[in-house]
Design a protein around this nucleic acid. Sequence first.
DNA 1: CATACATACATGTATATACTTTTGCCCGAG
DNA 2: CTCGGGCAAAAGTATATACATGTATGTATG
Lengths: 243, 243
Amino acid sequence: MITLPDTASPLYEKVKDYILTNIGKGQWSKDRKLPSENELVASLGVSRMTVHRALRELTAAGFLTRLQGVGTFIAPPRPQSTLIEINNIAAEIVERGNRHRSEVLVLETIMPTKELALSFEFPKRVSIYHSVVVNFENDLPVQVEERFVNPALIPDYDKQDFSKTATYDYLMQKTPVTEVEHIISAIPADAETARHLAIDVGACCLFLHRRTWTGAVVATISKLTYAGSRYSLGSRYSPSKNS
Amino acid sequence: MITLPDTASPLYEKVKDYILTNIGKGQWSKDRKLPSENELVASLGVSRMTVHRALRELTAAGFLTRLQGVGTFIAPPRPQSTLIEINNIAAEIVERGNRHRSEVLVLETIMPTKELALSFEFPKRVSIYHSVVVNFENDLPVQVEERFVNPALIPDYDKQDFSKTATYDYLMQKTPVTEVEHIISAIPADAETARHLAIDVGACCLFLHRRTWTGAVVATISKLTYAGSRYSLGSRYSPSKNS
DNA sequence: CATACATACATGTATATACTTTTGCCCGAG
DNA sequence: CTCGGGCAAAAGTATATACATGTATGTATG
């Protein structure tokens, strides 16, 4: 019988804290089933409705996934939410039933320009990783993906083979994203981009500038250029839905 | 005693729909207090816990605000949430310290094309409102805004003076948005758009296709075209934050 | 051996009930 | 007229209980 802290917050909040703390401490491992509602009722000495509310709200917040008849599990690291997903182009292409392939043009360590260091909010100059990858859908190039990566958060980025693992997958697995910034614009293709995407110079491209944070630290900066004629970004969003 | 629809969804969802629908129809006016939990219990014939859950979830989703000891109220129209805000161009321009002006080119009632009726998910042909407005930032045109509006949800749309009230503000005030779909692409300007935005034919434009729902009903369809050289869409988002 | 059934267990929903906390307001004492 | 006490109303929390629904598994039967 576990006793919850004697603070002034409502009971279901204490239960939520208890669960989150246990997850954080790795007490309940990642693939394993969490204690069932009835087990928590027994071990915490509160009613099932209270436990259920705590679990329901944690599920809505994205920490847990639940399956009726099966159990409660720790949710996979959050990919989701509106604009974040647009970046896993490999998964999108496969989901549409098409073939995805990528070509790594550049993978190196560089000293950032002054402007870039500023975007990373670095106090002083340190070297960073730099990659340029072209993504193909059925052998048609659709996206040029240029990334700058903070080596403090993602070491060994330069040792990966990104023709096999998508950069997105690797980054998501390596560090949790706590904040994302997107700037979307439409620009004409410059000579180099046009060559990579096999389009005319000056043709319309969708340009996505993206910064991700882990805590207060900028983790990655990405510049994604899509062939305007071959790609559009979609999102559907329900303010009321929780999943 | 009101009878809720006999669909396959859980009761608390029906109660949520009932409340959203009533707000949408302006049945419960904006400053007035909504019926109390006990009044809803009496009029809907469900238990107070069920009503409470419906109200709690609508509050969490941002539709309502509640004050213990006082009552339940309609929340002020939501600014927030990733991509939704990008549409209030008037507010954005003013916020940047610039002058906003709009020119109404078209405001009419039309019979939708087959394709359009399909987008509205209409079972049969009914007439809809149609507007075309150009938005200026310091006398420079930045956006052409074409909207199709469902008259069942927003009557009198065609009676408004949108050079004074922004279409966005009017729509937000009239009906709650429960779901939004965005499709963003980059396209070259056609002759008409080029004329309205004072750019060259074929110049890069950011094109935003947007549908909003109120409940299961499509409320508006918008086609927003931005001069690529003068505008970009930005968003910043924290997955962990829960308003 | 395979299928159907029974069973146990998990989450999901719905209700009745009780108590708590916050707020607004009326009304009486000063 | 003002201050304050008390009351009522409203949302917030907590529990017990019941039934519904989905899943896995073991067992009996053909």
